[in-house]
Design a protein around this nucleic acid. Structure first.
Lengths: 169, 169
DNA sequence: CGAATCTTTCAATAAAAAATGAAGGATTGG
DNA sequence: CCAATCCTTCATTTTTTATTGAAAGATTCG
């Protein structure tokens, strides 16, 4: 058998109805987080897999490329959605889906949402300063909107930890 | 002055620091919802605008095209993030940013998140049926994951209305 | 009603994002 | 240490998404 890197793309072996259903479900969900289809494919496949799968098996089942499989697994590992299992006497890494689905949500909140909220708060401070140079008359309306946004962001930052905690349960 | 549709694209008139800051902020936020840059530009501009703006003014200030302005405003209208104001004796529609920022979040939850959660629940039911034909031995692990997902979705559907209510305050 | 103005639509183009696979790096078994 | 295997990286290609602006539709004014 030729080494993986030289191998022609393995033909996608047919997926079971169960696997297809799972894959479609996760493609749809992970799109909410802006993640590419390939990542949904990998996770969806692992989600209903009885045992751990190696990268080449994932490639063979889904028909995706080496690069996509490698990168997708990297991303999923970083987010803690997938982990490798130790199999004695086996060279290839084998992956299983982590049961903790909350990781998707909490990682998204912590790595996407919260940073943007913080940046926004800095921007608001700068904007408040800038507004002082607007004529008194016109300042009011945008100032009110800014206040509202500030209030709303503050509230958001308060719910988020609570929400994260709730999701982790 | 030539009619708008025939007019060459208006040169972007320079934006104030305040406007740039606001626009950048909303481009970043709305990207979370998967919305295009042009929409963030429009909303960011309106957000700090003292008075209502007509579409051609938005085009002139941001340098975006007729089509992008029209479509972006349509989207923002549909989501209730922007509304037209009545100005006596004025032909063009004029737009203001709605103060209710929560609309972005709640619309997203209601139009993107919830529908997907419902679809997922249907899929889960189908998957549970399909799993019955798996050999008893292998069924367990994916079945547990599915249970967890089901539980988690159920929880999610319970928080969401609460969250929406909280955000609307 | 008819001309002028304003808005929407959509086919074409441009820009951004994802997927591909060859090259090279890392690891392991002999 | 060498060779085989496995994994990652990244320049290129493909696919998807956003933008453009001309054409056509809708509205208003005289």
């Amino acid at each position: 058998m030729p080494a993986l890197a030289e191998a022609s793309r393995p033909k996608p072996s047919s997926l079971s109805d169960l696997e297809v259903e799972s894959i479609e479900m996760f493609i749809n969900f992970l799109r909410l987080l802006g993640w590419p289809k390939s990542v949904g494919e990998i996770y969806g496949l692992l989600f209903v897999s009885v045992g751990p799968l190696a990268m080449d098996e994932i490639m063979a089942r889904t028909g995706m490329s080496l690069g996509a499989a490698s990168q997708g697994l990297k991303l999923l590992r970083e987010f803690g959605a997938v982990r490798t299992v130790y199999l004695p006497g086996v060279r290839k890494d084998h992956y299983v889906a982590s049961g903790e689905l909350s990781r998707f949500a909490t990682s998204y909140i912590e790595e996407e949402l919260l940073p943007r909220m913080r940046t926004a708060q800095e921007r608001i401070q700068r904007m408040e300063k800038m507004m002082q140079s607007l004529p008194e008359s016109g300042r009011q309306i945008p100032a009110e909107r800014l206040d509202r946004l500030k209030y709303w962001l503050g509230k958001g930052q308060k719910v988020v930890p609570w929400l994260v905690k709730f999701l982790k349960l």
